[in-house]
Nucleic acid binder design. Structure first.
Lengths: 137, 137
DNA sequence: GCCTAATCAGGTGTAAACAA
DNA sequence: TTGTTTACACCTGATTAGGC
């Protein structure tokens, strides 16, 4: 259960070799056109194995062609649509992140002041509004 | 898959849990409607075997993904919700405990090392006595 | 009373939808 | 296609309450 694709060696996932239960068929709505009432958006939850496959492929080639995507469909059991969207989002996020990084680096090479927080992409660390700061008593 | 960069802790993507929608609680009135209706919450009592299974899994991976949780559901006979809550509580307790430990260790050697505060106040700062002091930033 | 399962409040990450 | 927004899955941390 390990094979080669585009020069990438895919090993079986360490956690699970057998994939028993949830081969997810997202069961998407056939009527894509908007019904203002039904706002139920079906969110596919990717498991670790699928993510690993996608990420490995992405690392080798962030813009897979149709053939490649087809292979991914087969490997992950995801729909082509999910594959496509995932790569779209991934490219976008990556780009955004790299831009952020560059800003961060050139902004303060080794400044340790609190002001550096304003550029911290991890929002959790920034009190948004009336958040609280933790200090030692 | 979690790393530190420029003092920012990047956590791995959240583990995935497929939770049936039916498990969502109807969000009963949090307010003054003190209706005499029974608010008895059902408390699951875990037996030794279930605890052992959960603890073993936790030791190997405190953040199981959807597949793993599904297996746990099968092995323990517990609902996905109970599994999820157990892991949440366990992580929280563990974290709290480890923080206590670290703070105990650091208590004697030195004081007033505010290093790290400017980078990560949420994580780095540890209460000296018992509990955190909150101040407005 | 202690331990902890369940709940709550608030936040994060991201798949999906949408806009350009 | 890229860039932005939205909705949802799931998190943490604090709190509440059930069993022993």
């Amino acid at each position: 259960p390990c094979f080669l694709l585009m020069g990438i060696l895919f090993l079986p996932s360490p956690s699970l070799t057998a994939e028993p239960i949830s081969a997810r068929q997202p069961a998407l709505r056939p009527h894509v056109h908007k019904q203002p009432e039904k706002t139920t958006r079906v969110r596919t939850v990717l498991n670790e194995k699928q993510l690993h496959t996608l990420r490995t492929c992405y690392a080798a080639n962030p813009r897979p062609d149709a053939l490649m995507k087809e292979q991914l469909v087969e490997m992950t059991g995801l729909s082509p649509r999910v594959i496509r969207v995932w790569f779209q989002n991934k490219r976008c996020k990556d780009k955004k992140r790299s831009i952020m990084m560059k800003q961060l680096q050139q902004q303060q090479p080794n400044d340790k002041t609190v002001s550096g927080f304003s550029f911290c992409p991890c929002v959790a660390l920034i009190p948004k509004e009336k958040g609280l700061m933790y200090v030692q008593p």
